[in-house]
């Protein structure tokens, strides 16, 4: 465990900054991998950064039908997601803010972010916005139980919902792959894909109304606001990956605050994140987007998997 001190606090903030800073990179890498596997050259892996900076400097076009909700939603979205990132350990085995909130708070903050994003979709009075919002809420209301059950399994295994306790217990666990954790992992993986709007749930690269979910909601955004949304999306993605990595694959995570340990933790984390990102990207090239009403089947698989995990825990 860690002692709250200035150093740990600073380390914690730094690891979050690292996460925030490198999250577009992951997006870039995934796009590149995807392009390569589709026999395309693809954009640079730094393209997401260029996009963000470019967008920030551009003018904003605001619909005349919108209200303050539309203008504030990206800010709230970004703030909530970035705050959530504060609670998730990256290369350290702990987050200094672990005492202020746990994994449920992280989910709560994500929900807050989504709540405003969805409202902003409805605010523009466009037919697309409503479509996206409606689908997004449908998905999220189904993912919520899957996610909660996964947390249930994990918290049963490690006896906490506090992320610091979770990660340190996970790091200290002798037998790493228990059956219940394996099932939870399957579930978690589906959830990460769903939450971040990847294929087969949602196609982040589409602008076809039949397939849009997230993109439909944010269709009206431009300029700084769009930059915030894009970035927040990347942060959310990496945060969830970090959560997954540190709970299920906590090898090499820095348990002490020495430079070597932290450096090693960071590198190991980067490797793991990249690996998972690549896996997701490969999967994305392999599958097509599912029909909207088939998606619940996938979520049901996640829920079932978590349930089996719980049963395995008690048996």
């Amino acid at each position: 465990m860690f002692e709250p001190s200035f150093a740990t606090l600073a380390a914690g903030i730094i690891q979050t900054l690292v996460l925030i800073a490198f999250s577009p990179l992951l997006t870039g890498v995934m796009r590149k991998v995807k392009a390569r596997s589709q026999k395309r050259i693809g954009a640079s892996i730094l393209q997401p950064y260029y996009d963000i900076v470019k967008l920030m400097r551009k003018d904003e076009v605001i619909s005349d039908q919108t209200s303050w909700i539309f203008k504030s939603a990206p800010w709230i979205n970004f703030a909530a997601v970035a705050t959530a990132a504060l609670f998730v350990p990256v290369m350290l085995a702990y987050s200094p803010f672990g005492l202020a909130g746990d994994v449920l708070l992280v989910i709560g903050l994500f929900s807050l972010a989504r709540f405003f994003t969805v409202l902003s979709g409805l605010d523009s009075a466009s037919a697309f916005g409503g479509l996206g919002s409606s689908r997004e809420m449908m998905l999220s209301s189904l993912i919520e139980p899957a996610l909660f059950l996964t947390i249930f399994t994990v918290s049963l295994t490690f006896g906490a919902t506090n992320i610091t306790t979770l990660v340190s217990s996970a790091a200290g666990l002798q037998q790493l792959v228990t059956p219940s954790l394996l099932f939870a992992l399957i579930s978690m993986f589906v959830i990460v894909i769903a939450e971040t709007g990847r294929l087969p749930f949602d196609n982040p690269a589409t602008h076809l109304e039949l397939t849009m979910v997230h993109e439909a909601m944010v269709l009206e955004y431009s300029g700084k606001l769009l930059a915030l949304i894009e970035w927040a999306q990347s942060i959310k993605h990496l945060t969830l990956l970090a959560l997954m990595i540190n709970i299920f694959f906590p090898w090499g995570v820095a348990t002490s605050l020495s430079a070597a340990a932290v450096g090693e933790g960071l590198l190991v984390f980067a490797a793991k994140a990249l690996a998972i990102g690549v896996i997701i990207a490969f999967i994305e090239t392999r599958v097509a987007k599912w029909r909207l009403f088939r998606i619940p089947d996938l979520i049901a698989i996640a829920i079932a998997s978590s349930m089996v995990g719980i049963v395995f825990f008690y048996i």
Binding site: D102, N162, T165
Partner: peptide, 16 residues
């Protein structure tokens, strides 16, 4: 006996 969960909404608000 270890920390199961903790929550400080005030801190969260400050952080936000």
């Amino acid at each position: 006996g270890s920390n199961f969960a903790s929550l400080s909404p005030f801190t969260v608000v400050v952080l936000l």
